[in-house]
Design a protein around this nucleic acid. Sequence first.
DNA 1: AGGGTTGGAAACCGATCTGTTTCCATGACT
DNA 2: AGTCATGGAAACAGATCGGTTTCCAACCCT
Lengths: 196, 196
Amino acid sequence: MTTSATPRERLLEAAGELFHRDGVNIGVDALCKAAGVSKKSMYQLFRSKDELIAESLASRGPSYQALLHPGPEDERPARDRILTVFERQDELVAQGDFLGCPHVSTAVELKNPEHPGSVVARHFKQHLTDFFHRELVKAGAEDPGTLAIQLTMIFDGASARAVVRAQNLGGIGVLTAAALLDAAGVRASELAAQAG
Amino acid sequence: MTTSATPRERLLEAAGELFHRDGVNIGVDALCKAAGVSKKSMYQLFRSKDELIAESLASRGPSYQALLHPGPEDERPARDRILTVFERQDELVAQGDFLGCPHVSTAVELKNPEHPGSVVARHFKQHLTDFFHRELVKAGAEDPGTLAIQLTMIFDGASARAVVRAQNLGGIGVLTAAALLDAAGVRASELAAQAG
DNA sequence: AGGGTTGGAAACCGATCTGTTTCCATGACT
DNA sequence: AGTCATGGAAACAGATCGGTTTCCAACCCT
């Protein structure tokens, strides 16, 4: 029985997992059953299924981000902090239970870019790009704006490969991100140029 | 009325479009209505909706490929032929009616990698990788296998950006692919080393 | 013109969808 | 102990799902 935490938390947790595993077309009945919450309660806590989609995606954002990003206690150079994201992603893919980035998958399934869930997905991608951008500025990269977008693109490309189960060379994301950083002059030996 | 071509062709055409635009969860009724074909005929021509998904995806593969790949009459160096794929993709994205790679979207929605539609998607991605590989071998690249996969990954990453409507720098795919080719020594000035 | 095949329109099946409602068991507060 | 709010179980509504079947109009060939 899943009777810990509040009904709202249980719903967000179950929704986050089931929407990702089975797609956003999973029924509300199955969702509520998994959460141990009645439909009545669900519709008191959320206006609609669409709102639950968006809120569950948003609620899992921080933990997903924490899983990928290096913490502030990691004081290695920006280049290593950036590559950490791709290393962690590769680990998830290697574990075999990686179903693609939940935000991208949800946006793909929803189709409508105005859907609240698509908006959340877009914001999450922006957060990732912003992280890359901050680190690239620290590293003194020449065009951090473009490079940050390129890195995000590689991240999503690596996700897509996992989804279609394309032949996977382990570490292809790290390898490609590193190649781009090299090309941009953000080398391993580069000193972090703090502007603080 | 859509009464040209055979019912089978009309179905494949409508299915290819509607599955892509509305997702694979669109109903068989809507599909048949769009194709001007009865459900009875549909189920005489295809064993199930799942088979129709796979066959419509497969049937649109060649034209999608022709849209992206340079033809054999394009005798420019391999590097240019490779970049053509990304240029054409950028054009599609810029037109605004780009909903992501149909193969990746379908695989994302189906979840099950054993689904016949997912198998078709995987094969399509392999074809793209194979094209890159052939060109890279022609260009004498050092590690064509890895680089071909990296290019495919960039292709899918660029698709994902379009789907989530992330901030789009025009030509980010071309730019990134070119950077990778540069890093691998497949330069614009490189002479094609035909092994024929 | 007449016989036979093709294929569309639509009813039908049971299951499931989102969302609402009713009913009742439980637990907290006084 | 008695009142009251919380929330789960489940029936319900109307629509739609994938898939099957019936019926009939339109065409083919001789």
